[in-house]
Amino acid sequence: MLVYLLRRLAVALCVCVAVSALSFGLMFVVGDPAVAIAGAGGSARDAEAIRHAYGFDRPYVVQYLGWVGHVLRGDFGQSIYFNMPVTEIVRARLPVTAILGGVSFTLALVVAVPLGIVAARKPGGLTDRLALLLAVTGQAVPSFWLGLMAIVVFGVWHGLVPTSGADTWQGYILPVVVLAYSAMPAMMRITRSGMIEVLGTDYIRSAEAKGLPTWQVIVGHALRNAILPLVSLAALQLGVLLSGSIVIESVFALNGLGRLAWESLLRADLPVVQAVILILSLVYVVLTTAADLVNAWLDPRIRGVR
Results as ranks from 00 to 15, higher is better:
200 G>V: 14
160 L>Q: 07
131 A>S: 14
143 S>K: 02
156 V>N: 01
200 G>F: 14
194 G>P: 10
142 P>F: 04
149 M>F: 08
178 V>D: 04
149 M>K: 00
189 R>K: 13
218 I>K: 03
147 G>S: 09
196 I>Y: 01
133 L>Y: 01
132 L>Q: 15
174 L>H: 04
132 L>F: 10
172 Y>G: 07
196 I>W: 03
132 L>G: 00
160 L>H: 12
201 T>F: 05
188 M>C: 13
194 G>K: 00
145 W>K: 03
172 Y>T: 06
157 W>C: 03
135 A>N: 01
150 A>S: 15
167 D>F: 12
170 Q>M: 13
181 Y>C: 11
217 V>H: 07
180 A>Q: 09
141 V>H: 04
217 V>S: 11
205 R>V: 05
191 T>F: 11
148 L>Q: 04
150 A>I: 03
137 T>D: 00
165 G>E: 12
136 V>N: 11
170 Q>N: 05
204 I>T: 13
171 G>Y: 09
201 T>E: 15
216 Q>V: 13
209 A>P: 04
180 A>T: 08
163 T>K: 06
215 W>Q: 06
176 V>Q: 08
216 Q>C: 05
152 V>H: 06
150 A>L: 12
189 R>W: 09
129 R>K: 14
144 F>E: 02
197 E>G: 12
185 P>E: 01
192 R>V: 10
194 G>I: 05
209 A>K: 02
212 L>D: 11
176 V>F: 10
146 L>Q: 02
180 A>R: 05
211 G>F: 11
166 A>T: 15
213 P>S: 15
135 A>H: 02
177 V>K: 12
171 G>S: 11
159 G>V: 04
152 V>K: 12
145 W>G: 00
177 V>N: 09
156 V>C: 02
136 V>I: 15
193 S>C: 10
147 G>F: 10
193 S>F: 11
